[in-house]
Simulated scan of single mutants.
Amino acid sequence: MKAIMLGFGLSVFLASTVTHADSQEKKPNDWLLGAKSDTERFESLQTYLRGFDQPMWEVGERFRAIHEALGRSNFELAAYHWEKIRVTIKNGYLKRPARRANSDAILLNATWGDVNEAFGSKNAEQAWAGFEKAKTACMACHAAESVPFMNNQALFDLSKPD
C-alpha cells in the first residue's frame, strides 16, 4: 500500500512539474530560448557571435593595454594581455577558419613566442622591441588578409615613449 501511495504521489508531483514547466510563458528577453527550433537558436547565436571583427577589436584593446603596461614597466601585465591575444585570435578563427593560415604563419607561429619571451625578460629594451615586433606582425597579417586599410589607424602609431 505504501508503495502504491508513494508511486501515486510521485506521479502527481512529476505531472505538476511538467505542467508547470510547459505552462511558463516566455519573456520578451528570451531571444534564444524563445526560438522555435534549435536551428533557429544556432542561427541566432551565429549572428550574435559575428565574425573575426570582434576578436580583432579585443586584440586592438589588449594591444593598447600592452603599450600602457610597458609604459609602466608592468611586464607581467603585458605578458598577460599577450597571452589573451593568442587565445582571442584562436577563438576568432573558430568562427572564420579562412583567417587561420595567416594568423598562424605570421603571428602565432613565427612571432608570438619571441614577443612572449621579450615581455618575460622584464627588460624594458627587449620588451619594447617585442612590442614593435608584434605591431609589425599584426600589420603584415592585415596586408596578407587584404585589409591593409586596418593599418592606417592610431593604434599602429603607438610606440616606445621617448
Rank of each mutant, 00 (worst) to 15 (best):
R86P: 01
W128V: 01
F75M: 01
Y48E: 06
K122H: 07
W128N: 01
K160Q: 13
I89L: 12
L70K: 04
D104H: 12
R62Q: 14
N151Y: 07
L10E: 01
F156A: 04
M150P: 08
A78W: 03
G34I: 05
L108A: 09
W82S: 07
S121K: 03
G130R: 08
D157G: 15
H67D: 08
E125V: 13
A118E: 03
A134I: 00
H67P: 03
N109V: 12
F149T: 15
R50E: 14
G51H: 00
K84G: 02
W128P: 05
A35Q: 13
W128K: 03
W31K: 09
L155W: 01
S146Y: 13
E145I: 13
S73V: 04
P55Y: 06
H81V: 00
N123W: 09
D104L: 15
D38L: 12
V147L: 11
Q153Y: 06
A118M: 05
Y80W: 06
A154V: 12
K36A: 15
E125G: 06
D162G: 14
W31N: 11
V59C: 09
P55D: 07
W57R: 10
H142Y: 04
P161G: 05
T111H: 08
F156T: 09
G71T: 08
N116Y: 11
D114V: 00
L49K: 00
S103A: 14
D104Y: 14
T19M: 11
L108E: 08
T17P: 00
E83V: 07
A69R: 05
T19D: 11
E145A: 14
G34H: 02
Y80H: 12
E83Y: 07
A105C: 00
M5F: 08
V147R: 12
Y80A: 10
P55M: 03
G130Q: 04
E61A: 05
A154H: 11
L49Q: 05
E76P: 00
G113R: 11
E40Q: 10
A124E: 15
A154D: 14
A140F: 02
D53L: 11
A134M: 10
Y80V: 14
I85L: 01
G120E: 03
L14V: 15
N151F: 06
